[in-house]
């Protein structure tokens, strides 16, 4: 049994000369929480984009997921195969309520019927702690935290193998971040592999089992989180990145 669930092999994404992601390789072990850090503009979100194909795949390199090459698949197929991601910016379907959002995610991502989708909606909303009284409200009127909860819940509808979160803690209060922390641990405990991009280092350090640091599109350091953050190069990159 191969326990590398996701493999990124020499992946690059170039924008007209700008090497946003440049020859990145790493593997993700089934069941782990892998943290991804790096200064602003280091290519973290772009890395998520090219893995999930939303909105683009890699310029070169390979992405393997559960033994299959997925880097030329249409993005919706990658999602259906079990890679669920969230977005750094607020994302919602403004006209749809939480229930409607989860219904379509269950239908298209999970091939669930209405009844099964409803049951699963109850589960995932309970898991993320979304208030029942808010389920019938159009998403445009939800709070930032509620939108984030819903975005994670919608990703979980299809019981994905991997959940990829892009800075889920940004804009949240301290208690909300603590809830998020507990939620991610619970999701991981249920067997979901978690990839977590985060600027809030405390969250990364408290829950990730392994940490990758990107700098200028390349992997700068990789390994045990506590050790990685003491790495000279990492400290320089972070401080240098802030001063720019």
């Amino acid at each position: 049994m191969n326990d590398t669930i996701l493999e990124v092999v020499d992946a690059s994404k170039h924008f007209a000369g700008l090497k946003a992601v440049n020859g990145v390789s790493f593997g993700v072990t089934r069941g782990e929480i892998l943290g991804i850090a790096g200064p602003n503009g280091s290519g973290k979100s772009t890395l998520f984009n090219l893995i999930t194909g939303v909105p683009f795949g890699p310029t070169s390199g390979e992405i393997r997921f559960q033994g299959q090459r997925i880097d030329r698949w249409p993005a919706h197929r990658i999602a259906r195969a079990g890679l669920a991601r969230t977005f750094q910016k607020d994302a919602e379907f403004p006209d749809l309520t939480a229930d409607e959002t989860l219904l379509i995610c269950g239908t298209y991502n999970g091939q669930l019927g209405r009844v099964a989708a409803r049951t699963r909606s109850d589960e995932v909303l309970g898991l993320v702690g979304f208030a029942d009284t808010r389920r019938g409200i159009p998403s445009r009127n939800l709070s930032v935290y509620e939108k984030k909860q819903l975005m994670i819940a919608s990703g979980l509808m299809s019981r994905p193998a991997v959940l990829m979160l892009d800075e889920p803690a940004s804009g949240l209060t301290k208690p909300e971040i603590e809830n998020l922390d507990r939620l991610l641990v619970a999701v991981n405990a249920s067997g979901v592999t978690v990839l977590l991009i985060e600027h809030v280092l405390s969250l990364l350090l408290s829950i990730s089992q392994r940490l990758i640091v990107l700098n200028q599109g390349s992997v700068l350091a990789e390994g045990n989180p506590a050790e990685v953050v003491r790495n000279e190069a990492v400290i320089t990159a972070y401080l240098g990145g802030r001063k720019q």
Binding site: T52, G53, P55, A75, F93, T101
Partner: peptide, 16 residues
């Protein structure tokens, strides 16, 4: 409406 208002999000949830 999902495709109309948030194309990337919809795609990331399995909608073509």
């Amino acid at each position: 409406k999902a495709v109309r208002d948030a194309e990337d999000y919809a795609t990331a949830r399995g909608i073509s």
